[in-house]
């Protein structure tokens, strides 16, 4: 596992310009396995973050908090790194740049900010790139095994419609990915595998690269990459006859419509949403509908009180009572 984590970090380094790659490469292995994000901002220090904290990096490749001794990122570094990330082919990533991120081989995601150019009402491209946020995808196989019993309904050999709720960077997507993998491969309690359709709007769940999922998402999973949830739902329902449809980061009214469509077709839903607690969701108009209509039968709340991905609470959807023993 440790070696795999270092390998993932080294894969990401291939996309970073040589000047910054060297100090990052010199980092002790104990950090390489933990780093979640590498941030490059013009004129600012190179920042690495792990375990909820961030650090600068000195020339010898040690994490530091001393601003004077740290490595600063210049415009050249950003341009070179962006060239490597886009594989010298901006034209091949037009759509990704418009969405503000590029997915790398390995499922890692690079967020981009800069000067946004509009054509009419639509974003045309991003120029003068000023910041890059490289988020290292850490797949945690097996994290969902203990909670599967809560979302499976043994009587009708199916699952409950489930919503995973947590603040950012608490492991929602990782948990959802592992649930998908487990259900798709086949869960021993039910002795069957589900056909799962994944609508991966932000290319984070499957981390598709050249049509190949970079994460293990199971044997019976079909992925619509970069597709918005409403269109994706219709396409999957029409063409792929899924048992379950999974989607990340719901929130807009059209996402809620998509979920209604799925339920109409008798298909189960797995979804995630940003939030702290149930009140937080009720206060959002679009999501309130889902809660009032009792669409979801299970709510899983995560936080990072005991490390990323701590299960805080699992609520049952009818009376909102805890079922976590």
């Amino acid at each position: 596992m440790r070696n795999k984590d270092i390998e993932k970090f080294n894969n990401v380094l291939e996309y970073i310009c040589l000047d910054l790659k060297e100090p990052l490469n010199a980092l002790p292995s104990k950090y390489k396995t933990k780093i979640e994000e590498i941030r490059l901002r013009i004129g600012c220090p190179l920042i690495i973050s792990f375990e909820g904290k961030d650090y600068f990096l000195d020339l010898q490749g040690n994490p530091t908090t001393n601003y004077d001794k740290c490595i600063k990122v210049n415009k050249e570094n950003i341009i070179k790194t962006f060239k490597l990330i886009s594989n010298y082919s901006i034209y091949a990533f037009e759509e990704e740049i418009r969405n503000g991120f590029i997915t790398l081989k390995g499922g890692h995601r690079v967020g981009i900010t800069g000067k946004v150019i509009y054509r009419g009402n639509i974003i045309d491209t991003i120029r003068n790139i000023s910041s890059l946020n490289i988020r290292i995808a850490r797949e945690k196989i097996g994290v969902s095994t203990n909670i599967l019993e809560f979302i499976i309904s043994p009587y009708n050999r199916s699952i409950y419609n489930t919503l995973i709720i947590s603040p950012p960077q608490c492991g929602k997507t990782t948990l959802l990915r592992d649930i998908i993998r487990n259900l798709s491969d086949g869960y021993c309690l039910l002795n069957k595998g589900f056909k799962i359709g994944v609508i991966d709007e932000r290319s984070e769940l499957a981390g598709m690269y050249n049509g190949i999922p970079q994460h293990d998402i199971g044997l019976r999973t079909d992925v619509l990459d970069g597709c918005n949830k409403k269109d994706g739902t219709i396409m999957l329902l029409r063409a792929m006859s899924p048992d379950i449809i999974a989607m990340d980061e719901i929130g807009s009214t059209s996402d809620v419509e998509a979920i209604h469509e799925i339920l109409k077709a008798g298909v189960k839903v797995l979804a995630t949403v940003h939030g702290k607690d149930i009140q937080d969701l009720v206060s959002r108009r679009s999501l309130n509908v889902l809660i009032e209509d009792k669409i979801f039968e299970r709510y899983i709340f995560l936080d990072n009180s005991k490390g990323v991905g701590t299960i805080k609470e699992i609520l049952e959807g009818e009376n909102f009572t805890s079922i976590l023993m």
């Binding site: 594989n87 010298y88 082919s89 034209y91 091949a92 037009e94």
Partner: peptide
């Protein structure tokens, strides 16, 4: 390769 296929440069 580039205009119609949007194939990344090295592969193109």
């Amino acid at each position: 390769e580039i205009v119609y296929g949007a194939v990344p440069l090295p592969e193109a």
